[in-house]
Amino acid sequence: MSGSKSNSGLGASASSGHAQGQHSHAHSSHEDCGHHHEPMPARGSRRASAPTGEVLVSGRGMTMSRGGRNILDHVDIDIAAGEIVTLIGPNGAGKTSLVRVLLGLEPPDAGTVTRSPGLVVGYVPQRFERDAAIPMTVQRFLTLGARAPRDRLQHCLEEVGAGGIADRQLAQLSGGELQRVVLARALVREPKLLVLDEPARGVDHLGEADLYALIGRLRDERGLGVLLVSHDLHVVMAQSDRVLCINRHVCCHGVPETVAQHPEYVRLFGDAARAFGIYQHHHDHAHGLGGEPLPPIAAGGGDKSHA
């Protein structure tokens, strides 16, 4: 689980560096899954090409089954410094399992996970269950992941928009406040890789926009690598450099489309809508009961995920 990889081309993984055009006919000719793209000008904050940062964590052929069910089926993934990789897929698609394997919380049945040596990871789990039996101020909670002086803790809290709550009890926070505090705990560690499992869950829409803006800033200013998990197939950060759609196997991957102009989102979020992207995704192939992809109806297409 150690050993560094050189950063030669990061495109190494099948899951990165897709040209947009590749999918332009995806809906009619694809062997896996296609997506709609409305041609969009590249946004300033998003790189058109794959980032060239050091690969922080890399999984190859990760396969896992539990109770006779395939949860992960030969999944490849790379996350490099300075890029935001969004993992999407329906419920039960194995997103959280993939994250757990990448974090080293569970070993894969097959395949390898390589992390760059000394990698500091900040992790925001999907659900954070508080335990009122443990007295815990927000400030003390922040230092559970790493020691830091009080002003740094305060800075991290302000960064996530939770400046005034350092002395409150964890058990008394609202769901949204708790989410921010858990993120702040990750930031106190000064991570190189930030892993967020459905971070928008439990925060309101305004908070969600702030959250995505913060993640984009962290990537831009500190060069963090970010792995973001979302079960929402439609909403993906505009700042995502790459999107990986999995349903036990890698369905498809590539550069996401933004929705700054999408009327639905502009109406819902106003200015905040600019922080959002949409990634329309139509599953064109069925999955069997065990989750295995069924043979495509039409052959051909350019998706490399099963190459």
């Binding site: 080293g104 789990p125 954070f128 269950e129 909670f141 992941g145």
Partner: peptide, 18 residues
Amino acid sequence: WRTLVAVAVHEELAQAEG
């Protein structure tokens, strides 16, 4: 103490943090 408390608060998070 630090490890024991962190594990008591959230085992998975503590493990992910090394």
